[in-house]
Nucleic acid binder design. Structure first.
Length: 271
DNA sequence: CGGGTTACCTGACGGC
DNA sequence: TGCCGTCAGGTAACCC
């Protein structure tokens, strides 16, 4: 489920159900072989630790406690939910001092659970190479994107999905942002103009913000749906709409694999 | 090194 | 109904 907006929505859902001063009473580890073997010390490291703050960085969730930070990536199928019944592929339970039990479920096990010492998480290998947040107006600018585009020779869709250049843009919102910016996904990045980059930077921010806003309205689902608020499917302009009419001009939507990922665009609206 | 491909897993879905 | 191939929103580890 997760690109940046979905992770942000999960973060907000967790904040809602974890009041200030909540402690992790204990952790139940059901299986540790996710994408990477989960450190066996996690239950002991976080036992009786207060959750001070929950943060999102890129597509990662961070649970900051007094001494350590629990690091979580949802991979493709990771979800958090308030435990009601055990389900297949539940991997870890957090028993909280407010009586809640949080369950992390991840059928494909592409997700990550790890930890770092407090204030050291940014040096962790998962974070050291990450680019700017798309909402960082100081760092993620049209100038910056233009410079990056000139130095490389990949399809622009591949470029904006590269987390080294800018974080949070995944396969769905890459197609959606490029539609909004009127740029075809296969266009070579070094052929983008400064103006293209200006539109694209804005389009990425707008598309992600709209999705976050949409996700916000589904947080009430957090309990039953397990944070599985899902993508804001009905608002997709091009993603998964092969051969369907473009909402703007009615031209059938094109589909092709770009950089190994399915990609969608309107050949009339985008150039 | 940049750029492209593959592997990691399970489940859902479409075609036969 | 069931079997099989294909595909899925991420990313690190490989190649060349």
């Amino acid at each position: 489920m997760p690109e940046l907006p979905e992770v942000e929505t999960v973060k907000r859902g967790l904040e809602k159900i974890i009041p200030a001063n909540t402690k992790i009473k204990s952790i139940e580890l059901l299986r540790a072989d996710l994408r990477f073997p989960m450190p066996q010390e996690i239950p002991q490291k976080f036992k009786n630790q207060e959750i001070l703050r929950i943060e999102r960085r890129a597509k990662y969730l961070l649970f900051h406690t007094s001494n350590n930070t629990l690091i979580n990536h949802l991979g493709m199928t990771g979800t958090w939910r308030e435990f009601q019944d055990a389900k297949d592929h539940d991997h870890i339970y957090l028993n909280l001092s407010n009586g809640l039990k949080l369950a992390y479920r991840d059928p494909r096990r592409f997700g990550i659970l790890d930890f770092a010492r407090k204030d050291q998480w940014q040096k962790h290998k998962f974070f050291s190479h990450l680019g700017p947040e798309p909402f960082d107006r100081e760092q993620f600018t049209a100038d910056y994107l233009f410079q990056q585009c000139k130095r490389r020779k990949v399809a622009i869709k591949t470029l904006i999905m590269n987390q080294v250049l800018v974080v949070g843009v995944g396969n769905i919102y890459a197609s959606e942002a490029l539609f909004r910016a009127a740029i075809r996904p296969r266009k070579s990045c070094h052929r983008l103009t400064k103006r293209d980059c200006e539109r694209l930077v804005l389009a990425i921010r707008e598309i992600l913000q709209k999705a976050i806003d949409a996700g916000g309205s589904s947080i009430s689902d957090f309990k039953s749906a397990g944070g599985d608020s899902g993508y804001f499917q009905h608002s997709f302009q091009v993603y998964d709409r092969k051969d369907k009419p473009c909402f703007v001009c009615e031209t059938p939507i094109q589909a092709a694999v770009v950089g190994g990922r399915s990609s969608y665009w309107c050949r009339s609206c985008q150039s």
